[in-house]
């Protein structure tokens, strides 16, 4: 656990020593703030027609749409946050330091995952703060907001783990980001694509990340959805650890 914390802490420190993390944070915050203000303006126009005391008003009109936009952005944010983690180490020839230090492959991968997840989770939390600010002027459905936040954190954990797996697979950060974006998008949109093709398959529906994220936006926290996200996260991290193992055995 100590080594995992050390690797994660080192990655967080290095991330924030570079402009990339700050620029990513700033751009996402600006984009979400802009969307938030647009939605808020529309909400104000409609506010006279709505009962301000009804928590569904602000939550449905502003808070949850902002978080839905974030869920789409996370498909891009997670690959960008993870592309450097293992691929960057391989490219900078620093991976031997970890591999030769007697740290297990899984511990390296979990440390890298936590290091990247810290940035992604920070973005989620900043995004959640925007709709939370409405609590000063209106009443929000905090239960739904909490459920949506939990869902987004689980969703981003899965995307981060997929990003780490792709980053372990190649030594080129850009390729890792592209692969993670494609895989994540496929997993997120697979059910929509199937429906467009006229296929309504339960398995395809179950496999989709969106299927399991959507209930959280309605305030539904189901163990099956939590287990699904944890399963995707664990499988992706095991794949990354397996890849490090094969770097040792196959070269």
């Amino acid at each position: 656990m100590k080594t995992i914390r050390l690797i994660a802490g080192n990655d967080i420190k290095r991330q924030f020593a570079q402009p990339f993390a700050w620029i990513l944070l700033a751009l996402v915050t600006i984009l979400l703030a802009w969307q938030f203000l647009l939605l808020f303006e529309v909400y104000l126009e409609l506010a006279s027609k709505l009962n301000a005391a009804d928590p569904r008003g602000a939550s449905d009109s502003v808070a949850l749409p902002v978080l839905r936009i974030l869920s789409g952005l996370l498909l891009l944010i997670a690959p960008l946050a993870t592309m450097q983690s293992l691929a960057g180490e391989r490219r900078a020839h620093t991976l031997p330091l970890l591999l030769a230090a007697g740290v297990g492959n899984l511990r390296i991968v979990i440390g890298k995952f936590l290091g990247a997840f810290a940035l992604v989770a920070l973005i989620v939390l900043i995004a959640v703060c925007m709709p939370l600010s409405l609590e000063f002027g209106t009443t929000l459905d905090l239960g739904r907001l909490a459920a949506a936040t939990l869902g987004l954190l689980l969703f981003s954990a899965s995307l981060t783990a997929i990003g780490i797996a792709c980053s372990a697979w190649t030594a080129h950060p850009a390729l890792a980001a592209a692969a993670a974006l494609i895989i994540s998008s496929l997993l997120a949109l697979i059910d929509m694509g199937a429906r467009l093709q006229g296929v309504n398959n339960e398995l395809i529906n179950w496999m989709s990340l969106s299927t399991h994220l959507e209930p959280f936006f309605f305030g539904l926290i189901a163990s099956v959805d939590i287990v699904y996200f944890l399963l995707v996260t664990m499988l992706a991290l095991l794949f990354a650890a397996r890849r490090l193992d094969s770097l040792r055995t196959r070269g």
Binding site: N10, K13, R14, A17, Q18, A92, H93, T94, L95, P96, L97, A100, A101, G102
Partner: peptide, 18 residues
């Protein structure tokens, strides 16, 4: 075993941000 090894690869494994 690896804790008892110090390894300097051909390219020193340095983190440029530190």
């Amino acid at each position: 075993a690896r804790r008892d090894i110090g390894y300097l690869p051909e390219e020193p494994p340095l983190y440029g941000e530190l």
